[in-house]
Simulated assay, not measured.
Amino acid sequence: MNLVQENISELQLMKNYPKELFYSGNLELLQKTKISIVGSRKPSKYSRSLTHQLSSQLSKNAVCVVSGGAMGIDAIAHKGAGESNTISVLPCGINVKYPAINKNLLSDIEKKGLLLSQFSSDFIATPWSFVVRNELVVALGEVLVVAEAELESGSMRSIEFALKMNKEIYVFAHRIGESTATNELLKSGKAKAIYDIDEFVKKFSKTLVEVPKTVDDFIDFCKSNPTYDEALKKYPGRVFEAELSGEITIENGKVFSNL
């Protein structure tokens, strides 16, 4: 369906105002406080864990998470927020569900959250459409969080858009030699570090909700580093999905939790 863009004040920050905007899902999410989260498609265990914690805590405190539906940080941010409180901006038409590896996640967001696209329903993603997607992701958020990124990576375009829009940029603190782009942003004073997730969430939520830790039997089991066969036998319906979402990593026939 087409969207009336005049109701979205954030779009005024974009260099090229969208001629059309297509959507499927809950438009009420656009009225909420929104935070954009982007980053590497192959993040470290550290970045995966912090991204999931951050997006989950933001969502619990009524802040909507915006990202681009890609593998890695994007998918983790969407999943951490929960499909009903996230907006996924696509580099393709809404009917395409790209990347295919995230098809189920994007379908769930369409049913419970919101999909947005500047492209007609069956448009196939091209190199330039990812850049267009990135600008919209950045524009929608009150601030931009870059969870992990290397210099010369695609996330640099999102950073460039945020700087042009005068958006505050936040990053996680990484070790020297890791996430070179975010470390450079900190060094140059162009970004602020998130040292405490609760403190960050307080900036955007009127009342901080203390979220009790829940026990996930599957993740708890994976922390014992079982073999892939053991995990598949005990949780046949969860292993593949968890690997795609970044919750677990499988190396040398063993399962490792990333949360």
Rank of each mutant, 00 (worst) to 15 (best):
1 M>D: 02
3 L>D: 14
3 L>R: 02
3 L>T: 09
5 Q>R: 15
7 N>R: 15
14 M>R: 11
16 N>D: 06
16 N>K: 05
18 P>Q: 11
20 E>G: 06
23 Y>H: 09
24 S>E: 03
28 E>F: 13
29 L>N: 02
34 K>I: 00
40 S>K: 13
43 P>Q: 04
47 S>Y: 00
50 L>Y: 00
53 Q>D: 12
54 L>Q: 00
59 S>N: 13
60 K>R: 12
62 A>D: 12
63 V>M: 05
63 V>W: 01
64 C>R: 02
65 V>K: 10
67 S>E: 05
68 G>I: 07
71 M>S: 10
71 M>H: 00
75 A>E: 05
75 A>V: 12
81 A>C: 12
82 G>T: 07
87 I>A: 15
88 S>K: 02
93 G>W: 12
93 G>T: 01
97 K>C: 14
100 A>P: 05
100 A>N: 07
100 A>M: 08
101 I>S: 08
103 K>H: 13
105 L>V: 02
106 L>G: 04
106 L>T: 02
113 G>Y: 09
119 F>L: 09
120 S>R: 01
124 I>M: 14
124 I>H: 13
124 I>T: 15
125 A>W: 04
125 A>N: 03
129 S>A: 09
129 S>P: 00
130 F>P: 00
132 V>L: 04
132 V>C: 11
133 R>P: 00
136 L>I: 06
139 A>Y: 11
140 L>E: 10
143 V>S: 08
147 A>V: 00
147 A>I: 00
148 E>W: 05
149 A>Q: 10
150 E>S: 07
155 S>G: 08
156 M>H: 03
157 R>D: 04
159 I>Y: 08
160 E>V: 09
162 A>W: 07
166 N>I: 09
170 Y>D: 15
176 I>Q: 12
177 G>L: 11
177 G>C: 14
178 E>T: 11
178 E>I: 05
180 T>V: 00
181 A>C: 01
182 T>E: 05
182 T>R: 12
183 N>R: 12
184 E>K: 01
185 L>T: 10
188 S>L: 14
194 I>E: 12
195 Y>D: 10
200 F>R: 02
201 V>G: 03
202 K>V: 07
207 T>Y: 15
209 V>Q: 06
209 V>M: 14
209 V>I: 12
211 V>K: 03
213 K>M: 10
214 T>A: 08
215 V>E: 14
215 V>D: 15
217 D>C: 08
217 D>M: 11
221 F>S: 08
225 N>Y: 14
227 T>D: 06
228 Y>S: 08
228 Y>C: 02
231 A>R: 04
231 A>Q: 14
232 L>F: 01
233 K>E: 15
234 K>A: 04
237 G>K: 11
238 R>G: 04
239 V>H: 01
245 S>D: 15
245 S>V: 11
247 E>R: 10
247 E>V: 14
248 I>R: 08
248 I>S: 02
248 I>Q: 09
250 I>G: 04
251 E>D: 05
253 G>V: 14
253 G>Q: 11
256 F>A: 08
258 N>M: 11
